[in-house]
Write a protein that binds this DNA or RNA. Structure first.
Lengths: 276, 276
DNA sequence: TATACGGCATCCACTGGATGGAAGCACGCA
DNA sequence: TGCGTGCTTCCATCCAGTGGATGCCGTATA
């Protein structure tokens, strides 16, 4: 038999998504074969779908024959969560200017801290996270803040699952973590010491929104001068306050386009359309 | 007849892409009906496809029932053109710190200037462009730089098409534009005065890469203090030089994942995978 | 030089998933 | 109560999508 034996229960859509998902965890260009393997699709099918995606600019070929995400996809995706990013960026920049340390902003997306923005200097430190990247909530300072100040059920649900260990320093005991989060709530800030990556520590504070937690901002500093990270707290809290003030007028759900409640009648965004 | 009358010659892929493309020019959440209209698809088909995309996190529902791009899509798309963005960001920041004016970085994507990054302060000026957005090459300072320093055929091809006018100040005469670009090449910088949006002017310089044009960096300033934008040229050129130095070791094609030549043996990216 | 191999592109007969008109539902408004 | 709008569900039809087979190209091996 020639063809037609399509694996049942698999929609074309899911195949396209699987192809895109192949690029979720890598910055490299991938070969057709790699994509096919990652998406669990026959080569010929992959070939055709990838071809269409390239045609549309969602993927693009690199000069050496590899396949990468396309600029068009990036360009479209930039319209996601713009409200928060655009509003917050100057504040994250300020945070960097005032501290000289890598500054970042993260929100909760499922069980991960999703890094929305980060600002750093030319002298690169070993990066543990990147914009658009995710890290487990219990291993990062921003994550701990998010866990500590989220609704109780979020934390409870999170602690159900086993806590992944990224370095020898990661805290993986649920009981101990619960205590630590208690501390975070009491102190209004969280720290991590080499729990994500050896050589870097971090500190973060919550940014509130209408009483609830909105997001978290923090710093990543090399362990070498992390002995007194707490000295940055006044700046962190100051920026957090200003960011809160800048976002109060925007409904929390609108900030990210994520459903976290069942509110109604959220006003749509305004401003100039269609012009980039 | 019930169903099955699918418009022939339309692949599922193209339909999904049309749905995503509906969000290309708007930041608003769209209704199902709006998406269907934009993608030119029957409502029921749109409904099912959108449902699948939401399921996968590529789209998401807003609390008031609208549909928006999903965080997962954004997160995946962040892996596009990372090389240039990550490398250039500190320099764009520096540019902002040193000038206090909105700083931006753009490349050519087809016939548009594609804004890769921008840094601005809290006191917002009327935005004419945004990260991920496009503007015609002839109306912006970065665009003029890109046109002026690209290969000759790029400029020639661009001038074939009619030049869109964004404001009354836009230069739309091909002959005059050609002269202007000559000037840009001679001066090594370009300016625009209210050609994109009334109230803002801009200035930009080229960033070279192995002899060719790599990208362009520039400033946007309110017309009110745009009388002597040229005073920023030393800083602009200084930053451009430093950015050039920081990118020489990366092949131009790799910087963006765009094919601009037919080179071979581009080394793939390195560094830690899989960890955000 | 010959041979083997891995990766990529193309082909095509078959079929099951995609399709879209229509009907049903939910809500808001007069 | 009745109408209008927008969303959801249903299902008989059928064509777009499928994937095994084949062939090609460049590189590594004998």
């Amino acid at each position: 038999m020639a063809g037609g034996t399509s694996q049942p229960g698999r929609s074309v859509t899911s195949k396209i998504l699987a192809i895109l998902a192949a690029f979720e965890t890598t910055r490299r260009a991938l070969s057709l074969t790699e994509i096919a393997a990652s998406a669990n699709l026959p080569l010929s099918t992959t070939h055709r779908l990838v071809g269409e995606l390239i045609e549309a600019g969602m993927l693009s070929r690199t000069p050496n024959g590899g396949i990468q995400l396309g600029l068009r996809l990036w360009s479209i995706a930039q319209n996601t969560g713009r409200q928060l990013r655009d509003t917050a960026r100057p504040f994250v920049q300020d945070l960097f200017s005032l501290t000289g340390e890598t500054s970042q902003l993260a929100i909760r997306d499922g069980n991960s801290a999703l890094y929305i923005d980060r600002v750093y200097g030319t002298k690169r430190i070993a990066r543990a996270s990147r914009v658009g990247g995710r890290l487990p909530l219990h291993a990062t300072a921003v994550g701990k803040v998010i866990l500590a100040f989220s609704e109780a059920w979020v934390m409870d649900a999170y602690l159900e699952h086993p806590l992944e260990s990224l370095t020898a320093q990661s805290h993986t005991s649920p009981i101990q973590l619960r205590k630590e989060l208690e501390q975070v709530r009491a102190n209004n800030f969280a720290v991590t010491r080499e729990e994500v990556r050896l050589g870097t520590c971090s500190i973060a504070v919550p940014v509130y929104h209408t009483g609830r937690l909105g997001c978290s901002i923090g710093l990543v500093v090399p362990s070498s001068h992390a002995s007194n990270m707490e000295r940055h707290l006044p700046v962190l809290n100051g920026i957090a306050k200003r960011l809160e003030a800048a976002t109060v007028h925007i409904p929390l759900e609108t900030l990210l386009g994520v459903i976290t409640g069942k509110d109604k009648n959220i006003p749509d965004l305004d401003e100039d359309e269609d012009r980039p």
